[in-house]
Nucleic acid binder design. Sequence first.
DNA 1: TTGTAAGCGTTATCAA
DNA 2: TTGATAACGCTTACAA
Lengths: 359, 359
Amino acid sequence: MVRTATKVTTIRDVAAEAGVSIATVSRVLNGSGRATPETTEKVRAAATALAFRPSTISRSLKAARTRTVGVLIPSLSNPVFAESVAGVQDAAAEAGYSVLITSTEYDPGREARAIESLLANRVEGLVLTVADADRSGALDTLDEVRLPYVLAYNQPERATRAHVSVDNVAAARAVVERMAALGHRRIGMVAGQFRHSDRSRRRHAGWLAALADAGLAPGPVVEVDFNDLRLAHRLAPHLDGAERPTALFASNDLLALATIRAVRDLGLSVPRDMSVCGFDGIEVGTLMSPSLATLVQPARAMGRTAFNRLRAAIAREPQGHAVMLPFTLRPGESLGPAPPDIHPANPANVPLDRRHPSS
Amino acid sequence: MVRTATKVTTIRDVAAEAGVSIATVSRVLNGSGRATPETTEKVRAAATALAFRPSTISRSLKAARTRTVGVLIPSLSNPVFAESVAGVQDAAAEAGYSVLITSTEYDPGREARAIESLLANRVEGLVLTVADADRSGALDTLDEVRLPYVLAYNQPERATRAHVSVDNVAAARAVVERMAALGHRRIGMVAGQFRHSDRSRRRHAGWLAALADAGLAPGPVVEVDFNDLRLAHRLAPHLDGAERPTALFASNDLLALATIRAVRDLGLSVPRDMSVCGFDGIEVGTLMSPSLATLVQPARAMGRTAFNRLRAAIAREPQGHAVMLPFTLRPGESLGPAPPDIHPANPANVPLDRRHPSS
DNA sequence: TTGTAAGCGTTATCAA
DNA sequence: TTGATAACGCTTACAA
């Protein structure tokens, strides 16, 4: 390989080539200040000839603004986050902003380091999603240094923290109401760990509230660790017996898919024996069979909106703290009518219970 | 909102606080050059007290290296790209590099602008995936300015372009061989557009080669536009009649899911009437039913490896142009044994042989 | 209209 | 061991 010193062309090179001063080059290229047509032309030509691209880092240093925002998310592997990042990316590109991305993989240490890195890079602000917005070292740090940020998806209790989300409680209610309307009377929930997720808590609250309103007793709640999606053994204890739930609300789509999988592995049919509805609205849900019923959050818009709010915050435009985006319920084959009561006063029940003497 | 000028603390503030010169602060904090324990302590204390974080942009300006790499991908919505970006992110974080991300949404204009932006940001190199590595304006630009890059997933003809990929031809062969081993004799392909994707072309070549080796006539090839995944009407013409294929190889997983969906919408059962195998190995494939059989590319490793190669390239360490990562075939319920011949020893067969007099 | 020069926050060279 | 100072590439007063 040739050891060509990859010397980048600077404004000086252009000035020399055009036979003018660097100030003139700067003015012409930025359209600030007047210049004669000939000068303009000379400079333009020189810049093109040398493929000059002004260094944003020098520019940033002078201007004390980087036109860069940071994005911090738990994981790029979850489509709902990836999609929201795409939304940030879209809006940022339109606004001439660059995007520095960091993902934490749910590791607090990595999160802290990511924040440090973003801060050192002098991002003008952050769009981020944290596990729990009510208990986040990252947010505390940002508050301390007074760097603008907007949360995406999170819905913190501490409402002064700027955020864009759906109304998770109302959304969860919508799911349960639909289930009830389909005749389900025993409705369970599969949820991400409450102590690690503000969203999971809110959705659980909505689930509870809707059940109460409908006069239904809460079905089983299975809290699962997001790192272990083999749910069959977790679900099994709740899925036999006459009073097993006929519908499960999963607090996100990945969980919903894992739930469907587990339910089937346990010998039940979805949706004939068991309905499942997710939350998020990931695209692949529409491609599978049964297609996944889910509460759709506008993921792309989430990212876009968060970025736009962030810009406003950076510009110190006064604004409210919360933005609620509309959600929709996407019907899908995984959510069907409740089956006729499993054992309408029928003794065939008994063997089923025997199979699991422990229960 | 309070109009607090968010003044960032600089090395000068620290120097003043510690009662030393900025040079000393720099030396202490970077561990370059000696300093007495007391001085060190004073500086450390001052830096901590003021929450000083050296500006990477000033540092970059001085050092003429940014410790930042760019990532360019077609879309964050495809999990296989998102996962590879996560891999880059992992390796970059470990190496103390920041990652600027841009996605093109398959829009050439946006791609060009993204490259400009990355160049202006003085990234030290790029990890990127392009639609077609043999015909890419982006790569031409990078070659011109001699900025190091490593392709991920792409497998260009022009082998001098550094890339990390699987051996797409061999991988596609493996899929077809497995299908043949399961008794399939009529094997079709659902592929992304050849003229827009080097990967699709390679996989098609592997499909063809394996069929030839097995003495099988190529089944139908359906080239699909990635932006329109409603495949039923595209597939329908090929799926009736006695000689319809019993297995379909999809050139990527999203296509495979869409294919399964379409096949079912057309009234066939997967895998009883039709087997489907994808390519990529996205995680959700394991969660659905039938689970998706697929050729697994190590997506995370793809990103990691690409980043590591890039670092080597940046450091001007000589190295080969291509890295081939191992692939594996992930069995799944969508790929089963061939059904008994649709018309066993039945004259309806005859046309089948006639169609391929050569074999 | 154009040029000179200061300065953004660092690092590194050179003296002290 | 420490400090003054130049330099990195750019923008922007201010002068000419």
